Simulated scan of single mutants.
Amino acid sequence: MKHIVGRTILNLAAALVLTAGATNGAAAQQELRFTTSVPANSFIYADILEVWAQRVTEDSEGTISIRLFPAGTLGRDAAAHLDMVRNGSVDLAYFIPGYTPGAMREATIVELPNMVPNATIGSVAATQMVEEELWTGQGMEDIKILGMFSTAPGLLTTREQVASLDDVANLNLRGAGPTLLASIEALGATPVGGLTAPQIAEALSRGLVGGTINEWVALTIFGIAEAAHYHLDVNMGASPIMVGINRQTYDRLPAQAQAAIDRHSGEAFARLWGEEFDARIAAFRGAAEEDANRTFTTLSDEEAARWNGRLQSVIDHWIETTPNGQDLHDRFQAAVTAAAG
């Protein structure tokens, strides 16, 4: 009887040890919450952000998992996502710094006309600026930047055809961020800010704006191209986009988790973003060109010179008003050239 009782006690003790071990193992894997404004059926979510999160999770030796929340399901206001990761209400966020002017002032160089040829080159060059600590932003101390991206350059999409400066005069045009808004004003149009990408289609449909500056990804996934069918092929500048993690969250992570995040961030993340983005630009534009209800316009050489003359004033103003503006401009141009390689 004593032997049976003894064995029972030993078995119970072993079971408790196994249960405790399983509990500790489960607790060791920390879930990080990642808020995004893009819908789950978009390629940005499925083929970039989710792929990145899966790679980090698999490489973290079981220490973390990353849970994505699409389409604002964790924070409906896209303009608030930067503050959410700053204050730690989420661990990671995909955010557009143009929605919070001043947050990453140096990155507004991406928005300058004719500066970025495509998303891959722009993203790799922008990442170099961050890694060389040339772009530090304001109030970004609480965030570790994991991805510094550029969209492809935006074109002008309008409700009515635009083929000259005369056509664009006094037209209400939406832009994201102060630099794009300055470009709109330089052309003689009326700049409209404060509209996030998911709000543009409705604003066009209601006639609140006559046009918008976006690339083909935004035009397609946010339904903007359904509300406006005229497209002017001008390089109006791109938009900087970022992924960041709350710095305190990152600092508290195990070394394995930090190493996994670092391996898949920076240039690796920029290339994942850029290559997927550029491939979709080609696909979305190609499909739009098959639509007989759309009109694509290219400026004449004379008209293009007029537009570029107006837009040069925006570049000059950016250099003059940005601390170390000329140096930042030259360094970024060199990074773009190197990335184009």
Rank of each mutant, 00 (worst) to 15 (best):
T212P: 04
E141P: 07
K2I: 13
G309V: 05
A238I: 08
A169L: 06
I245Q: 01
T249E: 01
L74A: 13
M148Q: 11
L10Y: 10
W307F: 15
F284M: 02
F222R: 06
A22H: 03
N246D: 05
L272H: 07
E50C: 02
R55C: 00
D166I: 08
G75F: 12
Y45L: 05
D167W: 03
A238P: 03
G137Q: 12
A203C: 03
I213S: 03
A14C: 09
T298E: 14
P178S: 15
D47R: 05
S60K: 04
T8F: 13
R174Q: 15
L68M: 10
L253N: 01
L12E: 05
A40M: 01
D167F: 05
Y250L: 12
S239E: 10
D251F: 02
P97S: 08
G309M: 03
F34G: 00
G194V: 06
Q30N: 01
A20R: 02
A22G: 13
A79E: 08
Q138T: 15
P191C: 06
A22P: 00
F277N: 01
G137A: 12
A169P: 00
D77R: 15
W273A: 06
M242Q: 09
R252S: 11
L134D: 08
E58K: 12
N41R: 02
T136G: 14
W216A: 12
I64V: 14
E31I: 01
L10V: 12
T190E: 13
Y230H: 15
A28F: 13
G194C: 05
G102Y: 04
W273E: 06
L92M: 15
R306H: 02
S300Q: 02
P117F: 10
S164F: 11
L165A: 02
A227N: 09
T127W: 08
T158P: 09
L112M: 11
R105G: 12
M1K: 07
A268R: 14
I224D: 07
T35A: 09
G237S: 07
I64R: 03
R105W: 07
G62Q: 04
Q333C: 06
N324G: 02
A304D: 10
T220L: 05
P191I: 09
A201I: 06
G244Q: 06
N41I: 00
V38T: 05
K144E: 04
A197Y: 10
R252H: 08
Q29A: 10
V209D: 03
T19Q: 02
G207Y: 04
P101I: 09
G188A: 10
L187H: 09
P178F: 09
P70I: 12
L219I: 08
H264R: 07
T298D: 14
A189C: 09
Q54P: 00
E290D: 12
I261Y: 01
A40W: 01
H229T: 14
N324T: 00
N324W: 00
H317K: 13
I109N: 03
A126H: 08
V110K: 00
G237K: 08
L311K: 06
Y230I: 01
P117I: 11
D83H: 10
L156R: 06
D291K: 08
T23Q: 05
L165N: 04
I143C: 08
N11C: 11
E111Q: 15
A22N: 06
E215Y: 10
A227S: 15
L208F: 11
D278A: 04
T8P: 00
F34N: 00
M84W: 02
G75S: 10
V234C: 08
R159K: 15
D83F: 09
H81F: 04
